[in-house]
Amino acid sequence: MGKAPLISLWLAIFLSGGGYLVAVAQTPSGSAGWWGGRSRAAAEGNPEHGKRVAESKCAACHSSDGNSADPKIPKLAGQNPAYLYWQLWAFKTGARRSDIMSGIVATLSDSDLADAASFYSRQGVRPDPIKDQRLAAIGERIYFSGVGQGTPSCAMCHGSRRQAGRPVMGMMPMMGMMGNAPGLNGQHADYIVDQLKRFSSGERQGMMMGRIAVMLNDTNKRAVAEYLSGLH
C-alpha cells in the first residue's frame, strides 16, 4: 500500500469530527489543564516530587517503578509524559471514567499529576516474554501494514521500534495537531487487548482509535498486543 492512500484515510478520519487530541481523546475540546499551551520542555514536571506522589498514590497497583505485576493494569514506566499527564487529568475531570482512578487523582493537583507523569516517564519499561511467536509475527505485520487496503498502520501514530510513542517521520507535522500518542512497547498484552475492545465498543472514546479498533477482530487485537508486549 502506498503512502498516499494511508495519508488520505488518516486525513479523512481526522477531519470527520470528534476530539482534537489523541492523548486527550476523552477530554472536552478546548480544555487547557496544567499542560495546555506549554511546550514539552516548559511543561516538564518535577520527578523528585513525582516519585513521592507515585509511592503514596500509584505504587500499590502500578508498582514503584511503573512496571505493574498485574497484566490487566497498565505499565506506566517509560510512558510519554504528556500523554500520561493528559490521561490522569482526564480521570480527574471525569472525561475518562474509572471509579478507582477518579478517586485516587481527586485529591491531587494538576502539578502533582505532571510530576508523577514526569517520574514514571523516566523509569525503564520491562517487556513481557512473548508467549506465542507465531501470533506476534502476525501482530508485527498488522502493526506496520494495517489490516486491509486503506487502513492506517498502528506505527503511523505509535511509532516504530525505535520511535515508541512518536509518529513516523512523514506524519510529524499533522500529528502535531493531534497531540502525543502513547508508547506501547513492553505494555501488557492483556491490557492492550482490553483497551482495544473498549475503543471498538465505544466504551472508551477516541475518534481515530475507535474506527481502527473496530476493524480488528479478536485474533488481530491479540496478535498486535502480543507483538508489542515483547518490545523494549
Results as ranks from 00 to 15, higher is better:
P81N: 10
N217S: 08
N220S: 14
G150M: 12
L184R: 11
E203M: 04
R161L: 13
D218V: 06
G103T: 10
G165T: 03
K75H: 07
A25T: 13
G230K: 00
R161Q: 11
G179T: 02
A137P: 07
P74W: 07
G210P: 04
K72A: 15
P129F: 15
G202P: 11
L21W: 04
G170W: 06
A117Y: 08
R122N: 14
R141M: 12
L135C: 09
A90I: 06
S16Y: 06
K3T: 12
I142C: 02
P28H: 08
R204K: 01
L21N: 09
K72D: 14
D132I: 05
D190C: 11
K3L: 15
N46P: 08
V224H: 07
P81V: 07
G19W: 14
F144H: 12
V53A: 12
Q79F: 13
R198N: 04
S111F: 10
A137D: 15
G103Q: 14
L76P: 01
V105C: 07
K3Y: 12
A23L: 05
Q187R: 10
A136M: 04
K75R: 13
R162K: 15
A82R: 03
L76G: 03
S109T: 15
N220A: 13
C154D: 02
M207W: 05
R96A: 05
M174S: 07
W10S: 09
I212A: 05
S201L: 05
K75Q: 06
E140S: 13
